[in-house]
Computed example of a mutant assay.
Amino acid sequence: MRKSYKFRLYPTKEQEIVLVKTLDVCRYIYNEFLADRRNAYDRCNKGLTTFDQINQVKYLEFKTKVFSQVKQDVLRRLGKSFDAFFRRCRSGGTAGYPRFKGKDRYNSFTYPQSGFKIEDNKLKLSKIGKIKIKQHREIEGKVKTCSIKRDTNQWYAVFSVDMEKNPEKVNPNTSIGIDVGLKSCVTLSNGEQYDSPAYYRKSEKCLAVQQKRLSRKKKGSNNRNKQRQKVAKVHRKIRNQRLDFNHKLSRAIVNRFDRTVFEDLSIRNMVKNHHLAKSIKDVAWGQLIQMTKSKAEEAGKYVELVNPCNTSQKCSNCGNIVKKGLAVRVHKCPECGLELDRDVNAAINILNLCTVGTTDRACGVTDVGLGYEAGSHPF
């Protein structure tokens, strides 16, 4: 099992200049060898492989010294881009030919095997030096790669770790069905609901002010570049807030339940509705589900995705289909007389569709002590 650890870096001004120059070298290599691949196919009708280009990159010399394996990893990254391009061509999707990377569009480089080491609260990088690192927790497992990433004016080190042993699977004694939505971020089959913080919606006014100022700056000027970074910082704050919320919520779910059941939603198709797209992206259902899956895997627990067809229309008590629009928030069954919140009804139906283990599926309640009031956050 693979796991990632992300730590903040605090380079000096001199070290930051070296990091930026290293990114520029990597971007130059990426663009040059992308052009080589394109020209080889256009002129000779011949494709170049990643191995062919790795043998060529060692002959390039730069003023900024870059670790050899970092340069080789750039070409593996380019090779993956072409592999994905050909895969999309075969599957009949949008091809998306690999693009040249402009300035500030190439923001990471990777040490794939060696050339990095943490010692005395500093990250030692080959050809760069020792950079102060905020290691807020211990790294478990065997470190495989180290990626250095730039996010506006901040730098991070991301370690990919190979966990030596997979955790033993637990007996799924406690289960929960979860219906994701816009009014409530998640609705549990036991009746609990947690409202979405809607961080983007709350920051729209601030973002509009910064974007308006950006539109007034002269293109190519230093003031425009400074303002562009201010806009990026607002987006970064929104992204980090959403990330923090989903991390805490997914952790609370995994800690409380042995098995979690979500709908297998096609979010890419759902955001084609321009009336709901902004709200759907703001709640980030896909991110929450992915985080829950990764945490459950680490804990030896289960996450199951079920078919979302008619989960909101079907009565969780008798199975009768009760048609209702999005504006109708209460489920009322004319057959059995069941009346409850439509999202709770959907969550119970989602739980009833799961296939692993046993639980009291009729009401969707497990033997977990809840301890939280509806509408509050479980963290």
Score class of each variant (00 low, 15 high):
Q135P: 00
A84F: 08
E32R: 15
G93Y: 07
P112F: 09
I139D: 02
R90D: 09
F82T: 02
Y111D: 01
D36L: 15
R105E: 07
T64E: 07
T50K: 11
K149C: 09
R88A: 09
K144G: 02
K144A: 08
A95R: 13
R99F: 03
K46I: 02
F85V: 02
G102K: 06
W155H: 04
E140W: 11
R38Y: 15
Y28W: 15
K130D: 01
S160R: 06
L48M: 15
F116M: 06
K117V: 00
K144Y: 06
F109R: 04
D52W: 12
R99G: 05
V74Q: 07
S108K: 03
Y41A: 09
Q53N: 08
E138A: 14
D36H: 15
V66T: 02
R76K: 15
N107Q: 10
L34F: 08
K124L: 12
V66M: 05
L75C: 08
R38L: 14
N153H: 05
R37C: 12
E61C: 09
D24T: 02
D162V: 11
A35K: 15
A40P: 00
Q113Y: 13
R137M: 02
Q113K: 14
R37H: 07
Q69F: 10
M163S: 03
Q69L: 12
T50E: 13
R38G: 03
S108N: 08
F51D: 05
T22S: 11
I128Q: 01
N153R: 11
R77G: 10
L125A: 04
Q113N: 13
